[in-house]
Design a protein around this nucleic acid. Structure first.
Lengths: 223, 223
DNA sequence: TAGATTGTTAATCGATTAACAATC
DNA sequence: TAGATTGTTAATCGATTAACAATC
């Protein structure tokens, strides 16, 4: 067996992408969108780096991981790079999302315009409270949680958002899995245990404040 | 000059803490609190690792970075380790927080019980809309944004939360800085430009969904 | 052309894992 | 004692930075 030497992989650029790169990709995308809104045609690794606090070398390396998007001597064409990144992130097509937990946070998320702008469509909400079922919040229908499997299938829901109290989060996660959802965004302050076939991203608001408190208290020590 | 060899630093354990460790520290803390609530007296690096999907070696290494908290043959005493981590994160004392932007998301954050449980006290809210000024939301007084400097000083506010639309975020950040706030938690989808003396943590809800979408679409490629 | 900027290689730096003596 | 588990060292692995030829 002649073993092909491991190059960053041209034929299949997506193979094995470091998580750190993916998270920066989202930031590049956001800056590029701002640049376009401000009328910029092109940008450079130096400019993107300055805006985000990264080195220019890192920006180039990150992007080069997926192919050649730039023009030597010119930089990157914003519109082109936006399309390329959206394709990498798979947000060039829209994702259908279901949300469970129509409390304060759930309502806020249902009203968040940023989701649809980036290719996410919340197509149904769910709750246990009968008085909410059948209402519309921010234009989105609220169903009983028991209807999750049916509606998820009908509406082709692939991602789930959990906005319920900590105690209920795991059981909601299990319901999402049963309903065939492929990924879960969890706002409850618990670690979910899910089958390996389902991806999860957690956002813990208190933890974000903790990280900030640490950074503040250790200012100076860090730089 | 006899140069002391660089050890992980016993005298000043906080010197130069990798960001990755700090973020896991918050996760350890959360699991430990769950374990205590479930009646556990002690835990081990193996158990913590399993709960969070890390290796036992990593758990031990992370904790050892700050000193010796464990007991060979026994593990870690939960209550003790919780205290140690809270001390490291500086959440063993309470932080006073101000929030700007009493929209959907702002209201949800004002009502979030998780903050106070982890040592954060939201002591005032601010908005531009006159009809909100003077009201209380979730028990928290709403002031006009122009009162930020005065109230921030009066109430000893050290951290700020930005929950306003993207267009307003930078100007709110500037106001926080003027008011003497030391750290900012930013929910607007923009990169803030702040003086080096002020720390910032950003939470972009759409980016979290993007990361999830990428992970889902690349399932299999990643493991 | 001169200046700007890319993609890429090599060097550096940092983080994770495995292994094990020491400890209870 | 035997079994469990730590803290720590050394080995591995991965990510960042610096430098520069190639390109426009």
């Amino acid at each position: 067996m002649s073993q092909t030497p491991e190059k960053p992989d041209e034929s299949n650029p997506q193979a094995h992408v470091p998580k750190a790169i993916v998270s920066r990709l989202s930031l590049y995308l956001r800056e590029l969108q701002h640049l376009v809104r401000d009328g910029a045609e092109t940008t450079s690794s130096t400019q993107l780096g300055k805006l985000l606090g990264f080195t220019d070398a890192q920006v180039r390396k990150d992007l080069a991981h997926f192919g050649q998007f730039g023009y030597p001597g010119i930089g990157y064409r914003c519109a082109e790079l936006i399309e390329a990144i959206r394709k990498i992130l798979n947000t060039n097509r829209s994702w259908r999302v279901g949300l469970v937990g129509v409390g304060n946070l759930g309502r806020a998320l249902l009203g968040y315009r940023g989701f649809s702008q980036q290719g996410f469509e919340v197509v149904a909400a769910f709750d246990l409270r009968r008085e909410l079922v059948g209402t519309r919040i921010e234009g989105i229908e609220v169903f009983h949680l028991d209807d999750l499997p049916r509606i998820a299938q009908q509406r082709d829901i692939r991602l789930g958002i959990i906005a319920v109290p900590a105690e209920a989060a795991q059981s909601v996660a299990d319901r999402f899995v049963e309903a065939g959802v492929e990924g879960v965004l969890n706002f409850a302050p618990v670690t979910l245990s899910l089958p390996g076939s389902v991806r999860t991203v957690g956002v813990d608001l208190a933890i974000e404040l903790e990280q900030l408190a640490f950074a503040v208290a250790n200012l100076g020590k860090s730089r």
